[in-house]
Design a protein around this nucleic acid. Structure first.
Lengths: 207, 207
DNA sequence: GTCTATATTTCGATAGAC
DNA sequence: GTCTATCGAAATATAGAC
């Protein structure tokens, strides 16, 4: 029973952060009022200010959570994929997931945070770390796979991760504006070509 | 003398659009007031509303100009580069140009417009066309070069252009957060690898 | 066509009750 | 810790003079 208060507190935090992630992605940080975030979380602005000190504090907290989730999900996906081809296809699917599942909002929030980070040094530094983590995870995963098959990556792990991340981001942006211009097979083939792999590695992906 | 009015009118349009491009890139569309745009253009909100009907109308007009400039600049660069390696290096330089020259603002405005377009169907449709144009131009340029050297692109021109554009966008985003993580050579090599070219095509690029 | 002045709305942030 | 009520600031958009 003594936990009831702490529970409510952390639930409020979580609700506010989730609502912020959703609204910031759908409408943009500056287009969303602190009150609408609070309302979407079934709380009031008073609670928001008490917990985060304002809309910007809420964004900072969101960035933290976002960063942890990204690392977890990526590590999870990496551990499941048997080879880069399947891996790439899985990542591409998770990027292009339709709006229903919110995988769509991922990219929007990603760019929203990027824009914010480029303009705000504090957020920028944290974002930069997050990207470095992703590159490292991606690079390590690919290096491990390369070592296991006796092949070799054409670039150091971190740089390889950077190129792969770059392709995924840039292609996802184009896909979001016009899905027809960016078929999955093209992205997977492109990534494979980037790494110096021939296309024989994936037997027959999806459409 | 009869042209004075028309001149002033079109100059006001141009000034407002330029100011909008600069401010939207540096601070973001929603973070910029219509009044501050007018002030930066040495005009008032009255003139802005008279010409464009509001901040959103100004964005639409900006998008038009932006689209034309992109096509012109790209076609220009393509016609000058003797081979893909030099071409990629030149494009990368123009993307990573430091903040002084405003080449920096290019990427910010690009993402700002993308986010706006993803949320607004009208802007989205126009943006989609612009990206398709860029892909086509890039793809044609590369296809021409391939034909001239007897080699062959691994994908259709448009799709090749899409991959190249994707790499440039995604890598530029990472570069903007941390320049050290994305050396020019890596991007150029990556693009060459993507197209199935070996690295022997560029003799010795810059740092 | 452009400016000045202003009406209207909305947002961010705070004070105080519970 | 959360809510209600509200103050002050800022933004959009318009009206009318020149």
């Amino acid at each position: 029973m003594a936990r009831t208060q702490a529970q409510r507190k952390s639930e409020t935090r979580a609700r506010l952060i989730d609502a912020a992630a959703d609204l910031f992605a759908r409408k943009g940080f500056h287009a969303v009022s602190a009150e609408s975030v609070a309302a979407a979380a079934d709380r009031t602005t008073g609670a928001l200010y008490s917990h985060f000190g304002g809309k910007e504090g809420l964004l900072l907290a969101l960035l933290d959570v976002w960063r942890e989730r990204t690392a977890e999900q990526l590590a999870d996906e990496l551990s499941r994929a048997p080879d880069p081809g399947t891996h790439f296809a899985a990542m591409w699917r998770s990027v292009t997931r339709p709006a229903a599942d919110r995988g769509d909002a991922w990219l929007l929030l990603e760019l929203e945070l990027w824009l914010y980070g480029v303009r705000d040094p504090l957020v920028g530094a944290q974002l930069s770390q997050r990207y470095a983590e992703v590159r490292a995870l991606l690079g390590e995963g690919l290096a491990d796979w390369a070592a296991a098959t006796g092949s070799e990556l054409p670039y150091p792990p971190d740089e390889t991760g950077g190129l792969v991340l770059g392709v995924l981001l840039g292609c996802a942006m184009q896909y979001r504006l016009d899905p027809r211009c960016m078929p999955q097979q093209l992205v997977v083939d492109g990534l494979s070509g980037l790494l110096g792999l021939t296309r024989e590695t994936q037997p027959g992906g999806a459409s």
